[in-house]
C-alpha cells in the first residue's frame, strides 16, 4: 500500500491532435514532439505533422474552397462572429494555455481579448470589403466595366511563432473572410492554443476543410507547401532570410503569391485592415457592351 493517498481529484490531460477537414486525426506518421516551456515543463505530446498530412490538408482545402467562396459574404461574417462567441465562452482555457506557454496572466488575458475582437473585426468586413476594393471603371467605349475581388483559392500559412493565438487568428481571419480556404502550420514552440482554437472552429458552423491546422516543424513542411501546385498563395510571418528565399524560389513553380508579414506587431491595430483581405484577393475585371439608343446614350 502506498504510504500516502492523494485524495485530490486527478486532472484529465488533454490530447492535442491536428485539424483536417473538420476532423481531429492524429498525424498519419505517428510522430510526435514534446514542446517545453521556459521552465522546462512539458506542454504535451503534439503531432509532428508529415508531408502526407500537409498534402491531405491541401487537397481538402481545395475541395472546400468552391462552396466556401460561393457562400454569401454575410454568412461568412456570421460564421466569423460565431467563432468569436465560442472563443469568448472558452476564454479561461485559452488563458491557461497561454500561461503554460510562458505568458503572464495579464498578457494572456490581453491576447485572448484581442483575438476575440479581431475575429469580430473581420466578421464585420466579410460583406463590406468588396465595396471598398472593387470599382466601376469609366472606360471610354460603350461598355459597362467593373473590377471586383475574388479569393485566390488555397492559402498556405506559416503562423507567427510568437503570438501563437492572436497571430494565427490575425492571419487566418482575413484569408477566410475573403472566401479562401487555408492550411495553417501552427507555432512550433507554442502549439497548444492553435489546437484548442481548432475546437472553437469546429463548434462555429465553419464547414470542414475551410481552415486546417497542423502542428509540427515549419521547416519540415514549408518547402513542400511552397512546392505544392494546388496552393495559390503562401503567407510567412518570420524574418528568417534563408526560409524567405526558399519559399520565393519554390513559389515560382506555379507563380504562387508570396506574402511576408514579418514586421507586424500583432498586438496593435496595424495588424488589422481590409488591406490584409485584399492581399489574398485577385482582381477580376468584367466587360459588357452597352446598347446605344437615341441621342443621349448611356454610360456608367
Amino acid at each position: 500500500m502506498a504510504t500516502s493517498v492523494n485524495t485530490e481529484r486527478l486532472e484529465v490531460l488533454k490530447t492535442y491532435k491536428i485539424y483536417i477537414g473538420g476532423q481531429f486525426p492524429r498525424t498519419e506518421s505517428g510522430r510526435y514532439y514534446v514542446p517545453l516551456n521556459k521552465s522546462g515543463k512539458k506542454l504535451g505530446n503534439l503531432c509532428l505533422s508529415s508531408r502526407k498530412d500537409l498534402r491531405d490538408a491541401i487537397e481538402i482545402a481545395r475541395n472546400a474552397q468552391g462552396s466556401w467562396s460561393a457562400r454569401a459574404p454575410f454568412n461568412r461574417g456570421q460564421i466569423l462572429y460565431r467563432m468569436a462567441e465560442m472563443l469568448e465562452g472558452r476564454k479561461a482555457q485559452f488563458i491557461e494555455e497561454l500561461i503554460a506557454q510562458d505568458a503572464t496572466r495579464q498578457q494572456a488575458t490581453r491576447e485572448v481579448n484581442e483575438s476575440i475582437d479581431r475575429l469580430i473585426y473581420y466578421a464585420g468586413w466579410a460583406d463590406k470589403y468588396q465595396q471598398v476594393i472593387s470599382s466601376v471603371n469609366a472606360v471610354s467605349s460603350a461598355h459597362f466595366n467593373f473590377s471586383i475581388g475574388e479569393p485566390m483559392g488555397v492559402v498556405g500559412i506559416i503562423a507567427p511563432q510568437s503570438n501563437s493565438l492572436l497571430g494565427l487568428i490575425s492571419v487566418m481571419a482575413p484569408v477566410i473572410a475573403g472566401g479562401n480556404t487555408c492550411v495553417i502550420v501552427a507555432s512550433y514552440q507554442k502549439p497548444l492554443c492553435s489546437v484548442t482554437f481548432a475546437e472553437v472552429l469546429n463548434a462555429s458552423d465553419l464547414p470542414g476543410g475551410v481552415v486546417n491546422i497542423l502542428t509540427g516543424k515549419p521547416e519540415e513542411l514549408i518547402s513542400w507547401m511552397a512546392d505544392h501546385l494546388d496552393v495559390n498563395a503562401i503567407i510567412y510571418c518570420e524574418k528568417n532570410q534563408p526560409t524567405i528565399q526558399l519559399i520565393q524560389e519554390k513559389a515560382a513553380g506555379n507563380l504562387k503569391r508570396v506574402l511576408l508579414y514579418d514586421a507586424i506587431n500583432w498586438n496593435t491595430n496595424e495588424a488589422q485592415s481590409p488591406y490584409y483581405i485584399q492581399d489574398t484577393q485577385e482582381i477580376k475585371t468584367t466587360w459588357h457592351p452597352i446598347e446605344k439608343t437615341g441621342s443621349g446614350g448611356s454610360k456608367y
Binding site: 471603371n137 472606360v139 466595366n145 473590377s147 477580376k284 466587360w287 459588357h288
Partner: peptide
Amino acid sequence: VWANTYNKFDPAS
C-alpha cells in the same frame, strides 16, 4: 472576362 465582346482595353480598366 469579356462578355459579348473581346479584346477591349482601357487605361481605367
